[in-house]
Design a protein around this nucleic acid. Structure first.
Lengths: 191, 191
DNA sequence: GTCTATAAGTCGATAGAC
DNA sequence: GTCTATCGACTTATAGAC
């Protein structure tokens, strides 16, 4: 039932904006009266909180399931592409996860946990790349660059590919800077 | 008077969040009753619209006044630093200019104009850099990279410098990619 | 668990006196 | 131009019947 309510909340957020979410609209979508929602969530912020948890949990789950190539440069491309695809698939989700759009909302420690896990997992993957020793600054620069593609895409060309098509070039730039060797050619790609 | 109301609106937005702006709070700050605001603005969205205009106008004005070094690489650093400083100085202003935080708000054509001018000015400056021919993709990549530093800074370390301190490195990376020569040493900087 | 009823408050916006 | 008065809609949230 909580799951059903959350599904409805995501749909409303996609339709009316994350800040435009109302209990009325959520209740209507699940065929309830607004007060009935309080049986399942203590307050409206608890719904935001559960959404925040759900979003990062899903990101972390999918991140854990992501199989990366052994080649370090190709792995970097994989990480970047995965993040960009996830962040561009759903605007309110992206806003909830990565921006401060809801004035008073701060995620609870329990809901914050999956985001920490996801970040640690990503850093761990960076660190385990063959043949390079990454500093914290290296990871930060990568995060900023890839996040910039997402921000520019949402802001200046939502639904398009004006910035995402530059992602490979950006990642190669960063990889060059880290001294990663060029990826070996994939067998069977050239004629 | 419009100016006074807008000043109050910015203050309220900084205090309560951009989406938390209310006519009541604005009116109280200027010593008016809420309905009196309708003498100066047709609706709440007209205030957002004027704020949007004001923000981009100021950006464009300051951009026009910005003196850049003749050296192309140093000029790139100047452009990047200017944008980052402006975007990090004021969160609601940044959200209004560069994100889609207010569900129903779309800037009017007149208010949109300064942002177009600012973008054209910036592109023009890129194009007039000595010794390189920049493509549209080059500019886009620069915009994404620099915007990423801003986004990461606001999102992960507001008020700090975890990402802004990587800006010079990022710009040099992009400049290298464009084949810009290293900046000549500034006279009198070394002992 | 869901409902009705309702509280208690907010919001943007309008009408009309002064 | 600013005010009072007020509208109508909407908000989150609670109390208590079923």
């Amino acid at each position: 039932m909580r799951r059903e309510i959350l599904d409805a909340a995501w749909e409303v957020a996609r339709r009316d904006g994350l800040g435009g979410l109302t209990l009325r609209a959520v209740a209507e979508r699940v065929g309830m009266r607004p007060p009935s929602l309080y049986t399942h969530f203590a307050a409206k912020h608890a719904i935001y909180d559960a959404m925040f948890f759900q979003a990062w949990q899903e990101f972390d789950d999918r991140s854990a399931a992501l199989e990366l190539p052994a080649d370090p440069r190709a792995a970097l491309h994989g990480i970047a592409r995965f993040y960009v695809d996830f962040a561009l698939a759903d605007l309110p989700r992206h806003q909830l996860m990565d921006q401060r759009v809801i004035p008073d909302f701060t995620p609870s420690p329990e809901s914050y946990a999956p985001s920490v896990r996801a970040m640690e997992r990503t850093v761990g993957r960076f660190r385990s790349l063959e043949g390079v020793a990454l500093t914290e600054a290296d990871v930060d620069l990568f995060v900023a660059g890839v996040g910039g593609v997402v921000a520019a895409q949402w802001s200046n060309d939502p639904g398009g590919d004006r910035y995402t098509r530059l992602l490979d070039r950006l990642v190669d730039l960063l990889a060059d800077d880290l001294g990663l060797p060029a990826s070996p050619p994939t067998p069977g790609e050239s004629p």
